[in-house]
Design a protein around this nucleic acid. Structure first.
Length: 222
DNA sequence: CCAGACGTTGTT
DNA sequence: GTCTGG
DNA sequence: CCAGACGTTGTT
DNA sequence: GTCTGG
């Protein structure tokens, strides 16, 4: 997955009532390596789902510093169980990142045509993610951060790009968020289970390609 | 064993 | 923390 | 990733 | 060409 996400227009009714989705900033969007971007995320703590804000760019708990060095904005589904970076979070620190849509760029020769991708049913997209908590030894400063999992692009998505974010359907939220559920193969299957035609897309103006730009114009059909 | 990396995307 | 390369 | 900048001196 | 900011 490359490009930007947009969490605009998420309504509280969409990801089921138990997910509190108020106070999500409109048009929160940025390029995916921006290490300071806070994005909304749902996770499970003490049998309660909570919505909070996580820094995009997972800093593993063992990292020496929070600086530019060790962080990852995406995690490949193929290697979740192998990479030390993600293996522990995959076992017990799974999260959902809601967004109204995201962008990918289709390369045709020199041209890069951005597309806006969203759910056909107009509900928010639930990205599958992993999070971790990192703490500064001396100050006790805590930073919680996350990665969005990517899968091979399928269906119409494959026409514009070879990877895409893992998208979960509502009936899978419970399993995905349950930290006691440890059947990794089942979890990996879940990530790749998206059915055709769930996502739709249309081309948008390259206005969106400048990450300083924001607002309605980013999702206007081009 | 120790030291050093640990991630992805895309582009070449 | 844990894996890999040397 | 993409778009845009890419420099210094001095003054506030 | 290559780095930085977002």
């Amino acid at each position: 997955m490359c490009g930007r996400i947009s969490t605009a227009n998420i309504s509280p009714s969409t990801l089921k009532a138990q997910f509190r989705l108020e106070s999500i900033p409109s048009y929160l969007q940025s390029y995916n390596v921006a290490p300071t971007l806070q994005i909304p995320a749902i996770r499970q703590q003490d049998n309660t789902r909570t919505l909070s804000s996580l820094r995009w760019g997972l800093i593993p708990h063992w990292s020496e510093d929070k600086g530019t060095g060790v962080s990852a904005f995406n995690a490949r589904v193929e290697t979740l169980t192998q990479k030390p970076f993600f293996r522990d979070p995959f076992k017990s620190k799974r999260c959902i990142i809601p967004a109204s849509g995201f962008y990918e760029w289709h390369k045709q020769g020199d041209k890069k045509q951005p597309y806006y991708i969203y759910r056909a049913d107009k509900q928010p997209i639930a990205f599958a993610g992993l999070w971790d908590a990192w703490m500064e030894k001396e100050t006790g400063e805590a930073i919680e951060s996350c990665s969005i999992i990517t899968v091979p692009a399928t269906h119409r998505m494959a026409e514009i790009h070879d990877r895409m974010p893992a998208v979960l359907e509502a009936e899978l939220f419970d399993t995905w968020l349950d930290p006691e559920f440890k059947e990794t193969h089942v979890l990996q299957d879940i990530l790749r289970a998206l059915k055709p035609d769930v996502l739709e897309m249309y081309p948008v103006s390259s206005y969106v390609s400048n990450s300083r730009n924001d607002g309605e114009k980013c999702i206007e059909r081009a």
